[in-house]
Structure formats: C-alpha cells, structure tokens
Amino acid sequence: MSSAAVLTSTHEGVLTITINRPEVRNAIDSAAAVGIAAALDQLDQRDELLVGIVTGAGGTFSAGADLGAKLRGESPRVPGRGFAGIVQRSSPKPLIAAVEGYALAGGFEIALACDIIVAARGAKFGLPEVKRGLVATGGGLLTLAERIPYHVAMRLALTGDVIDASRAADLGIVSDLTDDGAALEASLDIARQIARNAPLSVRASKHIMVEARDWPKAEAFARQFEIADAIAHSYDAREGAAAFKEKREPRWTGR
C-alpha cells in the first residue's frame, strides 16, 4: 500500500496512514490523494484491520492542497472519495487523526473527515482559503457548523483565522491533547482500545452516529434498532456475553 507520497504500517489491527511530503508540509497532490484512497480501500477490505490513523510526516499534519501541483494540472481529488481521497467518503471503520503542527485548509478538512482528532498542543487548525481567493470545498464548510457553535464556525470560515489546539479542544473539535511529538502514540493507544472491542459493534455504532444526523426524529429509534438488532443476534454478541460470564477476554470473529 505504501508509496513515496503515503506510507502505511499495520500493528495489532491498526492501519497507520502517513502523508509523506514533509518538504511541502504534507500538501496534497495527486499522488498523495491516490495513496490515501488506496490505503482506505485496504482498511475497508481487510477484516483484520479494525481502525485507521491518519497522520503526517515531519511534524506537520497537512497544509492542504498543493497549489503548485494544481497549477501543473494535477487534481488532489479521487473519484468517489473526494479531496485527498478521504473527505467525501472515508471508511465505515473508525478513523483517528493524529495532528502535529499545521492542519490548515484541506489539511483541517482531512482531520474533520476522521472520527476522533488527537492533537499536540502546538498544533494549529484553520480554513484560510478566503485569504487566498478560494473556497473551502473539502467539507469544512459543510461539517464545521455541525461540530461547533454556528457563530464560531462562521467566524473561522469568514476570517480565515487559525486557532491553536487548546482552543480547538475547548470547542470540541479536538478530543485529546498531548505534548508535542506524542499525538501519534496517543492515537495508537486509543486505536488499540477500539480494536479490542467487538468489530461489528464498533462499525454499527459509528454507522448510527454518522447517519442519525440525517434521520427524521420520529424515525431515529426505529432506524437505530434496525441496525443494532442484527448485531444483537450475531456470534460476537453471544461470545461477549459468554466471556463476561466466564470472566475472560472475548474472542471476536467479526460475525
């Protein structure tokens, strides 16, 4: 799965995807977008991979689209997955963004496409497209006001201001703060916790939380039960109950 622009590694059911263009602050060109999309395809398809982490090499998450590459005619979008191969369609499995340094413009949108954001205290977040005569079309304008208060989201979008990780945590964008240099290890710890849980239950829980935002309120419980009932009758549900009764660790099979 690895390429020059994107590196991948696996350990204990966790796939780590590293944007590997530190010379341009991990800006996304065509090769990086294709590499991220290919890594996510593997995460989706391989049953032994349970959680994904997205991070950047060299102490920076991503500065967004590589404008030089765009001027050369390259596209940072992948059909079906969108900008950086992730923002339009990520993965049904959990994704964690491990952020060091800058997560700006499309880089911020990559982080927002993940389910959990872990950030070093020195990290910076923002959508500065308006300062460059551009519009943030990688999902930031579509999702930010769902995650934080409307007026704060609007201020960030219209001023292009950058906020630090502590402010992002106060707003609820960042779930976990770490010392500088420790975001990836903290993300791995969280990923391992998730990977120890029943994979069908984890995926169903993410599915419900993501989709419920668009469900009519009157139908929400019925739609939730439709998804959850299939899990309640799975082999893993029986195994979970047996392991609890027998005071042992469960042996999940994903069925």
Score class of each variant (00 low, 15 high):
226 E>S: 13
152 V>L: 13
196 R>A: 06
120 A>S: 15
218 A>P: 12
174 V>T: 07
14 V>L: 08
115 D>C: 09
223 R>Y: 03
105 A>C: 12
63 A>T: 07
12 E>R: 09
185 E>D: 13
178 T>L: 06
56 G>L: 04
71 L>K: 14
32 A>I: 01
7 L>S: 15
251 R>P: 01
101 G>Y: 04
215 W>C: 08
56 G>S: 06
77 R>N: 14
104 L>E: 11
63 A>R: 15
62 S>D: 10
244 F>W: 10
151 H>V: 06
226 E>A: 13
168 A>E: 11
76 P>T: 11
215 W>D: 03
162 V>S: 09
222 A>V: 07
243 A>K: 09
232 A>P: 03
23 E>C: 06
160 G>H: 02
36 I>Q: 00
158 L>A: 11
110 I>S: 11
144 L>N: 08
48 E>M: 10
251 R>M: 09
189 D>T: 12
163 I>L: 13
119 A>E: 03
248 R>S: 11
218 A>S: 14
255 R>S: 13
185 E>R: 12
114 C>H: 00
164 D>R: 10
184 L>V: 03
115 D>F: 03
78 V>F: 01
62 S>I: 05
130 V>I: 08
121 R>W: 01
95 L>W: 09
250 P>H: 02
169 A>K: 15
213 R>V: 10
95 L>C: 05
40 L>W: 00
106 G>C: 10
139 G>L: 06
190 I>M: 15
210 V>I: 05
1 M>T: 06
14 V>K: 12
93 K>Q: 06
100 E>Y: 01
162 V>D: 06
35 G>W: 02
242 A>T: 12
118 V>G: 09
141 L>E: 15
209 M>H: 11
87 V>Q: 00
137 T>M: 15
102 Y>L: 09
52 G>W: 05
36 I>Y: 00
237 A>N: 13
182 A>Y: 07
61 F>Y: 08
251 R>D: 07
150 Y>S: 12
13 G>S: 04
56 G>W: 01
219 E>T: 01
245 K>M: 10
112 L>D: 10
120 A>M: 04
75 S>F: 07
20 N>T: 02
5 A>P: 02
68 G>L: 11
161 D>Y: 02
213 R>Y: 07
157 A>D: 01
38 A>T: 11
198 A>Y: 02
244 F>N: 11
167 R>P: 06
254 G>H: 03
214 D>F: 00
197 N>L: 14
106 G>D: 05
1 M>L: 08
168 A>F: 00
93 K>P: 02
122 G>S: 12
176 D>K: 11
29 D>T: 04
62 S>Y: 05
